[in-house]
Nucleic acid binder design. Structure first.
Length: 591
RNA sequence: GCCUCCAUAGCUCAGCUGGAUAGAGCAACGGUUUUCUAAACCGUGGGUCUCAGGUUCGAAUCCUGAUGGAGGUACCA
């Protein structure tokens, strides 16, 4: 049991004994004591005043005395208005170091027996990834790590959108204009090569539309009748019919894209346990349509199309199967949801997908519930905000995208430049430098994207480089490197007993209090599905350590104190490393 | 039209199960290096928490409405 819950329970007991009434536990509010007051834990006594029928001050005093008598870790208290500020003994805080914080599994919750499947990334194979995908990848990966630390058994899945008319557009453009270009003979990364033809298609298509309009067609007719779009649609039909030549081309071009994606994932240290391919799942779901018709969840319109009426839920009617019997997005997703459940029997299934699809997922989950799928209650859409540029939304076809590979490269280059300017790495080996620049550059990028709550939209200005100072990844990495340097110089080894002869300094205690909060931060991040909680905590911790580092000598302290401060430093380094690891960010030994 | 989400310092963001004087970083200005890594630390200035009501001992936080912004509302995905 944590000290906080002990205080809560004892306070509840105190209310029963002193005032002869009961107060539910959740109404006993504890918060961190604000810096300007003495104490570490504060009990808000306003809600209790109406039970005690005494002034807030008197109530606070009575509760404080009761708590101090019952709980040996309480060293003292003070009352200011409706706030009972409780001071905890130094030995409690120092005891946490060896007892908890320095243990290798600090922050790892025991298994909770629940399985969760997290689908994220889910790229299309017609173009390379951009900054929006990077945000998706990082959020998905971080959530997987956080939930894993919280005790879930996590499976990371990637559903690749590898078929459809958009893929055929790239294929067609390559056939028409490619002249046999391959990643090998052009030196282009596979996904970029395919993306290039996607853009070429679009340009040529637009040109045809203009020509048709000039010849008297309406915009709509032109879009529909342009030869290129007809050819692309023809290609899709051939693909669906298994035309060998088309399938071969599709396989070849997709293999280029996969090689490209793997490279990007590797650079981002993103990984998956399970891949689904839409080419294997796009026909699923039709049996669920039959099931829904039989259960009268769906209805058929005269033209044969199948719908669900959600007007009672405040939504619209939604198409689930086309009149010609072919699937729509919803059909596939229904089938894929069932497939995932058949594969894993998970308790929860998460989709990390942008907020532009909020409505789709609302409907998807609702339909599955209406179909009577009990597992549908475990479905969750982790909806995140779009990454916008100052000019607005990124659009692949208009070239207003921040390319993932370009950005990663730029970040690493910038990291190199900054580091060399500081001149600290002169004697590093070439390999060590290379690793370091990668760690710092990616640390800056990942932190930048993860420190913002997922649901909020994110503004990225390509003209303003991502910071390396202040509230950034490199700041935290630097703090780690600094600690590592001290520990190395001291040939640090953890002892079994951390003793602190004199009283703790304020900053030492602040640091210990922060360190003690790490597990509860993980819990909050896991419950909120919010990696930004971890990111902001790591920053607070690093900031607090830097202050400590400036205020107190470590290596020059006398033996007992020195060992304590080394333990404190080691604990901080360990928590920083773990926290950053949850975000997929590495920390360097020196920088 | 209807639905959903967002609005906090010049900029980027924390804080939101209601609690003390609303916090960081960047940018601006000033200071700290014979001392463990200055990617650091300390200080100054900067706020009608979009607006208007309501709930209450207490509202940035909850409720209602308005305004502004984003997204959705396709036999696209």
């Amino acid at each position: 049991m944590t000290l906080e819950s002990t205080i809560q329970l004892t306070a509840q007991q105190a209310i029963t004994n002193l005032y002869h009434t009961n107060l539910p536990l959740e109404q006993i509010v504890l918060q961190e004591t604000r810096k300007e007051f003495e104490g570490q834990i504060t009990l808000v006594t306003f809600p209790i005043v109406r039970l005690s029928k005494k002034s807030p001050e008197q109530t606070g005093l009575e509760l404080g005395e009761y708590l101090q008598k019952q709980i040996k870790e309480i060293a003292g208290f003070n009352v200011i208005k409706g706030f009972l500020n409780i001071s905890i003994t130094d030995s409690y805080w120092t005891g946490l170091l060896e007892g908890n914080i320095l243990k290798p599994d600090y922050g790892q919750f025991p298994p909770n027996g629940k399985k969760i499947l997290i689908e994220y990334s889910s790229p299309n194979t017609n173009k390379p990834m951009h900054l929006g995908h990077v945000r998706n990848n990082l959020i998905g990966y971080a959530i997987a790590e956080i939930l894993s630390a919280y005790g879930y058994q996590v499976t990371k899945a990637n559903l690749i959108n590898d078929r459809g008319v958009h893929i055929c557009k790239s294929m067609l453009a390559w056939q028409l204009f490619g002249n046999g270009e391959t990643p090998e003979n052009s030196g282009l990364k596979g996904d970029h090569l395919v993306g290039k033809y996607y853009v070429i298609f679009d340009q040529a298509y637009k040109k045809q539309i203009e020509e048709l309009k000039a010849a008297g067609s309406t915009e709509e007719e032109a879009k529909k009748n342009a030869p290129l779009i007809l050819q692309a649609q023809d290609l899709l039909i051939k693909w669906e019919n298994g035309d060998q030549a088309v399938i071969n081309l599709w396989k070849t071009m997709n293999s280029w894209v996969y090689a490209g994606f793997e490279e990007t994932y590797k650079k981002l240290s993103i990984s998956f346990d399970k891949y689904y391919y839409e080419s294997n799942t796009y026909l699923l779901g039709k049996d669920l349509i039959e099931e829904g018709l039989a259960k009268n969840v769906f209805f058929k319109k005269p033209d044969g199309s199948v719908w669900i009426d959600l007007t009672a839920e405040g939504l619209d009617e939604k198409l689930v199967l086309r009149a010609d019997g072919t699937s729509v997005y919803m059909t596939q997703d229904l089938g894929t949801a069932q497939l995932k459940y058949n594969d894993f029997q998970m308790d929860e299934s998460m989709y990390v997908v942008g907020n532009e699809q909020d409505y789709h997922f609302k409907v998807l989950f609702l339909i599955l519930k209406k179909l009577g799928k009990t597992w549908a209650n475990g479905l969750y859409h982790l909806s995140y905000g779009m990454v916008d540029l100052p000019s607005g939304k990124m659009k692949s076809r208009e070239g207003t995208v921040v390319d993932a590979d370009d950005l990663i490269h730029e970040m690493i280059t910038t990291a190199q430049k900054r580091t060399e300017e500081l001149g600290k790495t002169a004697e590093f080996s070439t390999q060590k430098k290379k690793d370091l620049y990668r760690i710092i550059g990616l640390g800056a990028l990942k932190y930048f994207l993860l420190k913002v709550e997922p649901k909020k939209r994110l503004l990225f200005d390509p003209n303003e480089s991502i910071d390396f100072q202040g509230h950034t990844g490199p700041f935290i990495q630097y703090t780690y490197a600094r600690i590592n340097s001290i520990l190395t110089k001291a040939s640090y080894a953890s002892t079994n007993k951390t003793k602190r002869s004199s009283t703790l300094t304020i900053i030492e205690r602040d640091l210990l209090v922060l360190l003690s909060q790490y597990p509860s931060i993980i819990e909050i991040a896991a419950k909120e599905y919010n990696p930004a909680q971890i990111a902001n905590y790591a920053f607070e911790l690093a900031k607090c350590y830097n202050k400590f580092y400036h205020e107190e000598p470590i290596l020059k302290a006398e033996d007992n104190l020195k060992q304590f401060r080394l333990d404190l430093s080691a604990a901080t380094a360990s928590v920083i490393k773990k926290g950053m690891h949850l975000l997929g960010i590495s920390v360097p030994d020196s920088m």
